[in-house]
Nucleic acid binder design. Structure first.
Length: 141
RNA sequence: GCGGAGAGCCGGAUGGCCGCUGGCGCCGAAAGGUGCGAGAGGAAAGUCCGGACUCCCCAUGACAACGGUGCCGGGUAACGCCCGGGCAGGGCAACCUGACGGACAGCGCCACAGAAAACAAACCGCCCGCCGCACCCGAGGUUCGCCGAGGGAGAUUGCGCACGGGUCAGGAUGAAACGGUGGGGUAAGAGCCCACCGCGCCGCUGGCAACAGGGGUGGCACGGCAAGCCCCACCGGGAGCAAUGCCAAAUAGGACCUCCGCGCGGGCUGGUCCCCUCGGGGAUACCGCCGCUAGGCCGGUCAUGGCCAAGAGAGGUCGGGUUGGCAGCUGGACGCGCGUGGCGACACGCGCGCUAGAGGAAUGGUCAUCGACGGGGCCACGCCCCCGAACAGAAUCCGGCUUACAGGCUCUCCGCGCAU
RNA sequence: UGGGGUGUAGCCAAGUGGUAAGGCAGCGGUUUUUGGUACCGUGUACCGUAGGUUCGAAUCCUACCACCCCAG
């Protein structure tokens, strides 16, 4: 079951969306905060790996055109607050290292943590999982 | 040495590289850059109590409702917390545990079983008296086994229980039954009497008190449950940092509902109107102003006090817009050390220190070395190698409680064993 | 941050101090050529967990656990 291509995203977005995201100049990445952005990414294509689930989509023309935006999700299924924070931090660090070279500008990515695996997987394997998922997301277009 | 009890503390360490969030300094018009320094806990958790703070315009008192607390004294800003003491229970002991006011203010409940479940009696039973029978005589009858009117004896014993009385010792039960044990006593029994214990009442002594000790006295009148309702004493106004305030932007200059009203007075250096000798005088329907009062409000009622006031009134619901920034925001009932007072909780004084402030939410990732415990490999000690690291993440801030927790350290005390 | 509710058999559930109802499902049997329907019988609960009050607790009290809902 392939997810829908979400063609109506551009029409649904109200023309002047303020940049309600925090800018981190060092990494060049922008963090997603709005629920609507997460919902749009969830309707787009996804790729699962052993340590995480990655969702990605190319933004429409009337949205913020430049930069790579990324969001992180760890639900209660991952564990208690310590486990969720740890998983999010590892995902954030992997995104900081991998996305500037493997990601594409104008795209939104959402990284979703898994129970046990996101916190326990060796860090280089975690980065390779992210690279592999990004290749599949870009290539399957 | 073994076992145990109490109190307190720690919660891997160091370094390299790459990152994140505040603070201060410097450079820069700004964006930003750069240097220095800081960056999760004993429970940050559960959100169970108590406060600070902010708003509800601000309160005081009484009563009612509701909720909470509950041996006594103290500590504290306060507490349902802590300390000390009392009592009860557990333990050989160190010590531990305890929702521990009131059941003669009232209501209610106590299933089943049991004679009886609350106030004292009824019932069974026991005992005494009386009566009848069993004993003797015996009219008469007879199926020849006996039946039997009536009379006598009443010493003992037995049976029956009709009647009168005594009685609660005993009565299968039950969690609980006119106090328990022993002795005397009696027709049988009984606090009927005595000793000890328990209980109630009244003085005395010690203690601030809870309470304890001892004395007298009553012969026992007082079952349990208040974590059933309740009574007594004490405490509590409500909401919560998404409180609250400011700035900016945007929408808009809203709609609807409820309540109280639309009175009186004063010409008042206002407006307006009238008269006039142009100085002034007069009027008050209307607009404005001032005052009074009905009334409303101060989330239960009343009183005191206060506020509003005859509408730019008070209260509420809905609709529309925004999802930005700043303040609140971390220096505080703060931490550490010393001294004094106190058994202690703690208080006071002096000195030193500044110790996270994020905002969909930072405090991280990775590598190396060391260290601790457990498991495995090695024939085996040592050595070496490998694997696994407790519970858990600040969100306005404090004081507590509760719950979770690998492992380790320090001090004090108790019991047993051995040695001296 | 504050407030409210629920937890009983595999499922839905009644019970508010005294041996824990009922229905569906399951199993066995009768009926039927077989299945279904119908009828009869039957098992299944440490009442979320742990303490306490009481003679006695699903019920009352306390603490904890899990889930759900509401408001700003």
């Amino acid at each position: 079951m392939t997810p829908p291509e979400a063609p109506e995203d551009g029409n649904a977005a109200q023309g002047t969306v303020p940049p309600a995201v925090s800018v981190r100049p060092h990494s060049g990445l922008i963090t997603l905060t709005k629920r609507a952005d997460f919902l749009r990414a969830a309707r787009a294509r996804r790729q699962g790996t052993a340590s995480m689930m990655v969702q990605g989509r190319q933004r429409a023309e009337d949205e913020t055109p430049t930069g790579i935006r990324v969001g992180f999700t760890c639900s209660k299924k991952v564990g208690n607050a310590v486990a969720r924070n740890r998983a999010k931090r590892r995902l954030r660090e992997a995104a900081r290292l991998v996305l500037p070279e493997a990601g594409r500008a104008g795209w939104d990515y959402v990284l979703i943590g898994r129970a046990e695996a996101t916190a326990a997987r060796p860090f280089d394997a975690l980065q390779n999982d992210l690279r592999h998922a990004l290749r599949n997301l870009h290539g399957s277009q």
